[in-house]
């Protein structure tokens, strides 16, 4: 079943379209930056944006910071919201179930497909923005004569190897965050027969969480908000690596995955399929 889901993913034009759109925004920003040569002032703008003008190798980090707040979760919500509700709408869900595929297996396959989709999306964004960054901004070698190292947020030089390791860790963290959010959308997808409805419900959660994050009055529940630690992947680029929020974020997302995947299972396994 997992293989079937992955084949569906690969054969779906919409998947590749959404990943392509995700890559477009950072590419566009990169072109504008390199044409105008105007980096945002220090301390403002997206993370890493001011640093990429000096070294394009950091552009993947800047690109991820750009797509993480809205566009990546949007793609994940649409994909995960479609998981069950979309199958119900095309009428294929009942045929999978009478094949038979056990309902928990359907859900597990959907979760795996969601994780693979997220990995794919984040990796493609990272690779395209690395290429775009190196082409448009170079490695800083043009000015100094030798490639300047990318600096961490703490000012310490990162060798290309170190940068790659930290980048990989950051990508892993982002994937976990997105799968945590996607499992919420997956749960909504088992509630509704409308893929759009499920995706919109998940986005409503995202927006509500983002609003409450900025609210002082919501400070007590802030550590439990799904979006609270999303940006903590930046902490991989500090020196020494700032693990505290990364650990908390991973724990929180694991909790979201367990609870919402569990809720999706509880609902879907006993649900009457009337689509």
């Amino acid at each position: 079943m997992i293989g079937v889901e992955l084949r569906k993913l690969a054969l779906r034009p919409r998947v590749w379209l959404s990943i392509g759109l995700l890559c477009l925004l950072p590419a566009l920003v990169a072109v504008l930056l390199s044409v105008s040569d105007l980096a945002p002032p220090p301390g403002q703008g997206g993370a890493f944006l001011s640093a990429v003008l000096r070294n394009g190798a950091l552009y993947p980090a800047a690109a991820l910071a750009m797509v993480l707040p809205v566009f990546l979760p949007l793609a994940v919500a649409v994909f995960a919201g479609d998981a069950i509700a979309g199958e119900a709408a095309t009428g294929t869900l009942r045929y999978l179930l009478v094949r038979p595929v056990a309902r928990p297996r359907v859900l597990v396959a959907k979760l795996v497909a969601l994780a693979v989709f997220t990995v794919l999306a984040v990796l493609v964004v990272a690779v395209t923005s690395l290429v775009v960054g190196l082409v448009l901004f170079g490695t800083g070698a043009e000015a100094v004569g030798q490639a300047s190292a990318a600096t961490s947020l703490s000012g310490i030089d990162l060798s290309p190897g170190e940068l790659a390791v930290r980048m990989a860790a950051a990508i892993g963290y982002i994937v976990v965050s997105m799968v945590g959010f996607g499992s919420i959308a997956l749960f909504f997808s088992t509630l509704s027969d409308s893929a759009i409805g499920a995706a919109l419900a998940a986005l409503a959660v995202l927006i509500a969480s983002s609003i409450m994050e900025t609210l002082q009055a919501a400070a007590a529940i802030k550590p439990y908000l799904p979006t609270n630690y999303w940006l903590s992947w930046i902490d991989f680029f500090r020196d020494p690596v700032f693990w505290d929020n990364i650990d908390k974020g991973l724990l929180l997302q694991a909790g979201y995955i367990v609870l919402f995947f569990g809720a999706a299972w509880a609902n879907f396994a006993s649900k009457d399929i009337t689509s």
Binding site: K8, T90, T92, V98, R99
Partner: peptide, 14 residues
Amino acid sequence: LPQVGAMVEGPGAY
């Protein structure tokens, strides 16, 4: 179910 073939309320396909 593996020994049952079924079509319920119209066909379904991707």
